[in-house]
């Protein structure tokens, strides 16, 4: 299957409200799709439906043999949880049966020093915790990576490094990437395709077609600042 994911007529309702209606798109294997749209457009709902965490109508077809790595939006973790980064990664090796050194490889990929991984998760900074979640997602060699708002809770210099890292990992591992982001300039540079969810009609296409100033203003209700490189 040349496509990693095929979605047809996807409709998701939450408590009687239609969040996504008749959504259809495909994601070619090895490509990067960015999902953008204003708050409340249903970006996270789409991801949660794709991983089967929400009931939906329509069809979601992953290529046979797909292994999903999922990095959720900023999690509400208690500061004093006595679980170290290592505890968390070790939990994955024991559940999926991946070899223990896979955790070291993943930590190396995301540039998280072993000493940091040995700390309780609640003491990690926003960026360190995101990288730990990414390391967790990369264990067991996933074929698809779903990344919801990678830079929430990360300061600006950290943001740029995080995107560079995601791109490096995507190329090194040959991953298909699905990314929710508010950083339109980053989307412009890194994504092969952009899916723009909005109140009226969702649109799909390459960044240069979707990210025009007129369309951005129409979707977000205000001109958004972003710069091409």
């Amino acid at each position: 299957m040349p496509n990693a994911l095929e979605v047809e007529q996807l409709t998701v309702r939450l408590g009687g409200t239609v969040i996504l209606r008749d959504l259809g798109f495909t994601v070619p294997t090895g490509s990067a799709l960015a999902v953008i749209g204003p708050n409340g457009a249903g970006k996270t709902v789409l991801f949660r439906a794709l991983i089967g965490a929400l009931p939906y109508q329509g069809s979601v077809r992953w290529a046979p043999g797909t292994r999903i790595g999922y990095v959720p939006q900023k999690l509400d973790i208690e500061r004093d949880l006595p679980i170290t980064g290592r505890d968390f990664l070790r939990a994955k090796t024991s559940v999926t049966g991946t070899p223990g050194h896979d955790a070291d490889r993943a930590l190396e990929l995301v540039n998280l020093p072993p000493a940091v991984a040995a700390q309780p998760v609640g003491t990690l900074s926003g960026g360190q915790f995101q990288r730990l979640l990414l390391a967790f997602a990369l264990m067991g060699r996933p074929t698809v990576l779903l990344f919801d708002e990678p830079t929430a809770g990360v300061d600006e210099p950290g943001e740029e490094r995080l995107y560079e890292m995601i791109r490096r990992v995507q190329q090194a591992e040959g991953l298909t990437l699905l990314l929710i982001s508010h950083e339109l300039s980053v989307v412009y540079r890194h994504a092969n395709n952009v899916l723009c969810l909005s109140r009226d009609r969702p649109t799909l296409g390459p960044p240069e077609e979707i990210l025009t100033p007129e369309r951005i203003e129409q979707v977000y209700g205000a001109p958004l600042k972003y710069h091409h490189h």
Binding site: A53, G69, Y70, P72, F88, V95, T96
Partner: peptide
């Protein structure tokens, strides 16, 4: 089940994609 419980504790969505 401690490993499964730990992953589900951090995020039930991550747990789902891990096959739990």
């Amino acid at each position: 089940q401690r490993s499964r419980l730990v992953i589900a504790l951090v995020s039930s969505d991550i747990a789902r994609t891990t096959g739990i």
